[in-house]
């Protein structure tokens, strides 16, 4: 069977002013299965946002193939919802209008059904009292939440999120993470979740992709087989710590992260499966 989303030997370089080019991604390959929750971690500048732009069809890779549903991505598609790294709100529209903006921009009109859906999404991200406020009256974290509500509005089959919680405080962040899992559980979708937080990645994902910087490469893929539904309790699971330290090893000591820790993860995964 075809994988739902797949990257095959994808490299991407950006042209620079002086005619040279910056290699942002080098030979990246991975598959995502339908309704899988995949997290991407890696240091700043390793090409995570580049990955988002390639998957969402905003640009073509200079080498390799990006496939969705078995066909090559050549342009942006309707099935994908994107949460950008910067909260890209339109400063002249209030929260509700910002949330329905994609529909309006695409079709020229917004049905009352879409509007009530928008209301629900705004409530879901905890901004019910701010529905009529303008973006410049919101904090950075609130703006990010509007961006999340906007991406979820049309219930996309694929959701790509670029550090969606980076401007949130630790408490709201955790809460939003579980909220995301609840939505994902309720209306299953394929998620690519870019984050700087190892804890967040392990807590949310089925699979964590670890990237190494300059040029961005995929240094490891780790399956997280913690039981679902996950909650704040999951953090106390001993397996949780093993996964986290394994990922940490890969990020900070990519060459040393060898057989020992891999063996321990495999052992844990086996144990979890047997449970």
């Amino acid at each position: 069977m075809q994988p739902y989303v797949s990257l095959k030997n994808v490299s991407h370089s950006y042209p620079t002013d002086k005619g040279k080019s910056v290699l942002a991604l080098q030979n990246v390959s991975f598959d995502i299965e339908k309704h899988q929750f995949v997290a991407v971690v890696g240091p700043s500048g390793c090409g995570k946002s580049t990955l988002l732009r390639l998957l969402s069809g905003l640009m073509m890779p200079t080498e390799g193939q990006v496939n969705i549903f078995g066909t090559a991505v050549t342009e942006p598609r309707d099935e994908i919802g994107i949460v950008f790294q910067q909260p890209t709100l339109l400063p002249w529209l209030n929260v509700t209008e910002n949330v329905v903006f994609p529909v309006k921009h695409k079709t020229g009109r917004v049905s009352s059904q879409t509007r009530s859906q928008a209301q629900k999404m705004i409530e879901m991200v905890g901004l019910a009292d701010f529905a009529k406020r303008m973006p410049n009256e919101l904090s950075g974290g609130m703006q990010q939440r509007v961006g999340i509500a906007r991406a979820l509005l049309m219930d996309p089959e694929i959701l790509i999120m670029d550090e969606p919680f980076s401007a949130l405080d630790a408490l709201t962040r955790e809460e939003m993470g579980f909220e995301l899992l609840r939505i994902w559980n309720e209306s299953p979708k394929t998620v690519l979740f870019i984050t700087h937080s190892i804890t967040e990645a392990v807590l949310l994902a089925d699979k964590v992709l670890i990237m190494s910087p300059r040029p961005g490469r995929l240094s490891a893929q780790i399956d997280i087989q913690l039981p679902r539904p996950r909650s704040a309790e999951t953090i106390h699971d001993p397996a949780f710590a093993t996964y986290a330290s394994e990922i940490r090893q890969h990020i900070y000591h990519p060459h040393k992260a060898g057989e020992d820790s891999k063996a321990s993860v495999t052992a844990i995964n086996k144990k979890l499966v047997n449970l």
Partner: peptide
């Protein structure tokens, strides 16, 4: 990012200018 948003919706160029660049 706002232009990316417009392109991700495959909105025509004139809409990108009229509905995003002009108000901005």
């Amino acid at each position: 990012e706002l232009i990316d948003l417009s392109r991700s919706l495959r909105a025509p160029r004139y809409k990108e200018v009229l509905a995003i660049r002009l108000p901005y």
